[in-house]
Amino acid sequence: MEHGLLRQARPQIDRPHPPKTAPHPNRNPRWEACVATLQRRIVVYGSFLILVILTGSGSFILATTAQSRSDPDHNGPMGFADAAIPGAARGEMQAAHGLKDPEGARVAVQLPTSLRNGLMAAGAILSAGIVIAMMYLLYRVIKPLKELGRAVYRMSHGQLDEPARVGDLKDIGMVGDMVNDMATDLQEMLLHVWNHTSQDIALLNRISTALGCDCAGNRLAPEIRKDFDFVRQDIQDMRAMVKAFDFYHVQIMNEKLVSKAHPQM
């Protein structure tokens, strides 16, 4: 019933409709730009990685195949020089691989040792390239993510005093900047609460004095004193909550907000 009355008493606020050209409230242009940059990077790095992997593995396969073909003792499927394979079987194998002349085939697959070694070296270098590229990617992505995680953790524990430092303002760096903005807004709200409650306490004390009682409301009727105590406790609880936070460049000193950068001003 009481709620119903309150609902009726609340004035109706005419909110103007947002213009059609206004950006969607859930779409942050900075975030959109950040995602686009991240996508571009993933495509570029991914393409580079795939190219390196393909080139490296291709060189390696070519080098190992050439080695197996030029090795007369090798008994693998491509070792046509194997004398142990009977004539008919060898003919079948040649037919399966599209080779008519075994001598011609041997001439076609045999590579000079220097070229073979070169291909193997290229494969090794490219494999090392893959490892370095992957480590670089991990460094570029994982390190700022870790820092971001730390910043969010600090924020969730009420430590707003240290902003996230996640490098440049691209992709993850921009997310870090937005986390810092969020911490700033939270700090702003808390300091607002602190200032308002300071004013409220001063007001309560003034009312108490005007009513001719002490700050604890000792000369008030018990019901009113109970209400007074309730309001005062509410305010104290809010202030205790604000005090539990560590603020960026601001500290609470003797119940007043003081800048850490200019404490003596």
Binding site: E188, L191, H192, W194, N195, V250, K256, L257, V258, S259, H262, M265
Partner: peptide
Amino acid sequence: NLDVDRYGQDAQRLGAVGYVNK
């Protein structure tokens, strides 16, 4: 949000029009 008593005069000394709490 900082304390007016502590920073208000310094703001005026600097040449500002005034200092208001948020």
